[in-house]
Write a protein that binds this DNA or RNA. Structure first.
Lengths: 220, 220
DNA sequence: GTCTATATGTAGATAGAC
DNA sequence: GTCTATCTACATATAGAC
């Protein structure tokens, strides 16, 4: 009887809050496991264990493995797009922007969060690399990544009116791949460079590399 | 009865040749399937079907899934390293080299073969991207990729004696990631650029991008 | 919403005939 | 070396009690 009362109290007090917590925990766990193992290497069982719930519940909230994967990507992609476009709009409102400014608006929101010890953002970098390299997820890239990418390509095009859009797109995709390499291959850079990478200099080094690369490939 | 006779003739005529062909066919099939699906997405059964053999035979020749994967990477990596280092040695013997020359020696052997319609080289690009992004395969990267990478980083270091090895390693890894993006994300470049990429210009565009990027990030 | 139990399929690996 | 048959384990997904 007491249990029944407690149960009723919980249901009345915060049923949706508990539900939301489970949903969020499952999505967080899915993001980490998918990032560690990729889509095929991840298992619903491991996600359930990491979220502290049951296999059936992951299906209930996630809607199947493929849907759950798309949702984990969508959640971060939407947040990141807002941050990037917001930074770009604020920069442009403050005055004219150059190529380095535009690239910084794309890189900085991501790198700052990844560097600030929020591990889910590092996991997301591995997720994006996974999506970008696998043709099965092309529709995810088109739906969640391309709108923001096109906006940044347009901005670069404003600075180089004579350059072909294809050349700009090449430079942009190379730049994105370099950013992902910075996040996912730091272990390799440090092994090859025989030295730890200084976190503070990473953004400026990446911006220098990509801005000079794009400018040179467009001037060619 | 006729089928039995044919089978006996094949066995007597070329047993070891047939064996070698099976080994090679299995390795070729494994490379294609691993490239399409990644390590976890690939199945021994699909590799066997693609090679036209049996599941048990793939285990017999491949030595298990993980060993088979490492062998597919090792085979191409060794061949590619020879081509790259050979081209670099020939260039240096012909006269002094600059940054663009060094990068071209790294990119050209790969891009030429990938462009010449040899699909296994395109498959290998996706394999390398898979290995580079997945910490489980770090030992493969260290064993098969790093010796050649260190040689090229040394060469770049000769041109920039004041630059730190870490900064050069960063630029080199960004450049490799751009090369892989060129091969694995052409579909995305063409979608964003609203135009097909001209195959002939790809090498020079990539070299221009990376050489300018490395020079700028080292001058910073 | 949560949890247990289970249905159904398929994975990697191997034993043994030829 | 080759091929068939099979072992064992674990995958996704769902049904139904609470």
């Amino acid at each position: 009887m007491i249990q029944k009362v407690v149960f009723e109290k919980q249901r009345q007090r915060a049923p949706s809050k508990r539900a939301l917590q489970s949903r969020e925990r499952i999505l967080d766990a899915a993001e980490r496991v998918f990032a560690r193992k990729g889509f095929d290497g991840a298992t619903i069982r491991e996600i359930a264990a990491e979220a502290g719930t049951q296999v059936g519940l992951v299906h209930h909230h996630g809607g199947g493995k493929a849907t759950l994967f798309a949702r984990t990507v969508e959640r971060r992609a939407a947040e990141l797009s807002d941050l990037r476009l917001g930074m770009l709009d604020r920069r442009k409102a403050a005055g004219p922007v150059d190529l380095s400014d535009i690239l910084e608006c794309f890189f900085a929101p991501y790198l700052q969060r990844a560097a600030e010890g929020e591990p889910q953002w590092l996991a997301y970098a591995r997720l994006v690399a996974h999506v970008s390299a696998d043709p099965r997820w092309h529709s995810i890239a088109v739906e969640f990544f391309d709108p923001t990418a096109n906006r940044f390509i347009d901005e670069i095009g404003n600075l180089f009116p004579k350059a072909s859009r294809g050349a700009i797109a090449s430079g942009f995709v190379y730049s994105v791949s370099a950013m992902l390499a910075l996040l996912t291959s730091e272990w390799r850079i440090e092994a090859l460079g025989e030295d730890p990478v200084a976190p503070d200099a990473r953004l400026q080094t990446l911006v220098s590399f990509c801005a000079a690369g794009i400018a040179a490939s467009l001037a060619q």
